[in-house]
Write a protein that binds this DNA or RNA. Structure first.
Lengths: 339, 339
DNA sequence: CTGTTAGCGCCTTCAT
DNA sequence: ATGAAGGCGCTAACAG
């Protein structure tokens, strides 16, 4: 027998088992009846030759890749692990692999990155901030199944979107500050300019204030960008400017860390002098002292739901256009409630 | 012109541009000189037809996939983002895609998961706890380029390994407790039984004590498993058992969170009553009160170095067998030093 | 510099 | 239930 150094192919297996390659293909795919006896022979041959089918060949023949693409702005933050974990679990469950790529710090791109250019993935998961509206339109017009995460599709493009309930939760947590803790001058730290989550949260904030006849004061709205340093700087600036406030909606938990630092440096007590609340319920929310009152976000569910939608799309099943995952208030101590 | 609904192929482009498919292939790959004029024509045709090469076809033809596989035990924890971020940046830089898969909670597997079964990836990044020694041996014997992260290869298999300096750093931080803060009864919280990082840290702990003539007391060694709840339970148990201690090496920062909680519940002051130190320097180390003294681990560098090694392997260049990344002591307040 | 022609390894009708 | 043969789209010699 000739010892080819390259890995075994379906031909080698067929020869070794004394059958045709079609038969081998059939036991590989189990989609057509094959006699017990032959199956055994073929499997034995596969084992002996350490055979393993070449993905590229099947992909070419079937024009499916069994691969999902995940496109992100960048790989950072506490939310990333649970999100990816959720995505991976559903993908694996359906027999799909996961390809990952980032748009990088250049911001949303108009084009898909090379890896995902059609045919490398059967479907795409697009996270907010990675692909511009033009990019989404373009990709969609190519007929690539895709779902958007934390990002609304442009115009009325029927691209499924999975995101979380931001507005109502923000309104609820801000109203908690107003009603339960008698706060009236509440700072709102924004997300980055084009961040949809941030925009919705700001609407919730405004609604809460308006509903309680508290005027919206522009001076109390400052940048937080979901970043602890930016948040800290903003609070320090407010303090320096002598702007009074008795509550802070930090935008997210990360930013709350910066708020804590700024307040501590100014010898202001949380929650006695200032109530502070976050958003996300990251693992550090429980670690902060006092424990942070925040909004719980089921980020792993976002990944799970988005991937399910994508699978439905790939299988040409109907699916929801908008999936809004519920968020819940988590009362801890930083608002003023007893722990 | 016939309107085929399927995406354009290289043939379509060739016909549209009035050249042969080889020419199209050449402008695609830019490896052979092609006249300016023809390049322009071809590119114009590609644009007009919205052509995008099918990855499967090139893979099959070149028997390379330009894909790297990353195998993890599971997707959790603070260290995951920076690790993946490092990997992705280097991979992208070399034009490689990243395929991700997990072994799941079933622990180290003896087989590669389907996705990575040879030919789906040109190289593999194997993270500790995802593939057993047998699995590593088997995969290596198949000739698949691979590098291990935080895991030593079995026997003397020449599989490159990238990990961090655990022992010396642990010894240094424990000695800091002994020398600078006069601690003598220092608790050591272990990692999971087969965790190599944990084992090295324990050796460092033992060296530190031995070097200062402090007897190793088994009662002071308890499970921490890099988990805040397990760590908390262990400390509570020690307290309940009336075992005295004046210092705690938590194993990692996550576990330190549990230690803080247990101590706080017992009304013990950090660092006055007990010095506490962690390992990893995760973002929450700075958030804890008092700020956690710990060991900084360049986890993104682990990803970067490992991927570089893998690229070298793939290109048949020589590479280091063992890469030990340096860790550094980060003194904050939980050991007793002024902040 | 450009065209022609074999494959790459597998799936999938179509026969049998 | 099994075999034979064409084709998936692209690259890589090989000619010219």
């Amino acid at each position: 027998m000739i010892n080819r150094n390259s890995p075994a192919t379906i031909d080698d297996v067929a020869r070794h088992a004394g059958v045709s390659i079609s038969t081998v293909s059939r036991v590989l795919n189990r989609n057509v009846p094959v006699s017990e006896e032959v199956v055994a022979k073929v499997e034995e041959a596969m084992r002996a030759l350490r055979y393993t089918p070449r993905a590229a060949a099947r992909n070419l023949a079937t024009s499916r890749t069994n691969t999902l693409g995940l496109l992100l702005a960048e790989i950072v933050g506490d939310f990333f692990s649970p999100l990816l974990s959720g995505i991976e679990s559903v993908a694996a469950q359906h027999g799909y692999d996961l390809l990952i790529s980032t748009a990088g710090r250049r911001g949303p791109q108009n084009q898909l990155p090379g890896p995902f250019h059609k045919h490398n993935a059967d479907g795409l998961l697009i996270f907010a901030g990675s692909l511009s509206d033009d990019g989404v339109r373009d990709t969609h017009s190519l007929g690539v199944p895709m779902v958007l995460l934390h990002q609304t599709p442009p115009d009325g493009l029927p691209v499924p979107c999975v995101t979380i309930e931001n507005k109502a939760a923000t309104r609820a947590i801000v109203e908690h500050l107003i009603v339960s803790h008698k706060r009236r001058r509440i700072v709102f730290l924004t997300g980055e300019p084009n961040n949809e989550d941030g925009s919705w949260r700001e609407m919730g904030y405004r609604e809460a204030l308006t509903h309680h006849n508290i005027p919206i004061e522009p001076a109390l709205i400052a940048p937080g960008h979901f970043d602890r340093h930016i948040a800290q700087t903003s609070i320090e600036q407010l303090l320096r400017d002598g702007i009074e406030f008795d509550g802070v909606f930090a935008g997210d938990d990360e930013a709350a860390v910066g708020v804590y630092a700024a307040l501590r440096n100014a010898h202001l007590k949380i929650p006695d002098d200032v109530s502070v609340v976050g958003f996300d319920d990251q693992s550090l929310a429980r670690v902060l002292q006092p424990a942070l009152t925040t909004v719980h976000v089921p980020i792993d569910q976002v990944g799970i739901e988005a991937t399910r939608r994508l699978m439905q799309l790939i299988q040409n099943e109907p699916t929801e256009v908008l999936t809004l995952l519920p968020t819940t208030l988590v009362i801890r101590a930083s608002c003023g409630c007893p722990e």
